[in-house]
Amino acid sequence: MDPTQTLATGSGYWSPLLWLLALVVGLAVALVIRSRGRKDFREGEGRAPFISGNKEPEQGGGHIPASNIYWGFLESMKSYYGRLVPVHTGVPTDYVAWLLGIMALMLIIGLAT
């Protein structure tokens, strides 16, 4: 592979290999920082993780189901989704109607121009 391999985008260049190099450098920095940590630490020692003063939940009980992820986003976009989701009725006649509707619209636009 050519090391000068770049992607010309018309207004600039992007080199995937330079990006990889940057990743490697970042990884090296992280490893250097990690190697400066305490060598005498062993798992199981020390204090339990601090979770806002609550007790650490049991292993296995900490899984968040998918429906709860982005709850806030969905809640704030409720008016948008409230209109969009019902359009996906699942009724085949509606699907055909949408196809015919777009076809009619394009016929009007196409013949007018």
């Binding site: 989701v85 996906h88 009725t89 699942g90 009724v91 085949p92 006649t93």
Partner: peptide
């Protein structure tokens, strides 16, 4: 009935 055959929607 097409209106009732819609387990797939949304």
């Amino acid at each position: 009935n097409a209106e009732k055959v819609k387990k797939l929607k949304g």
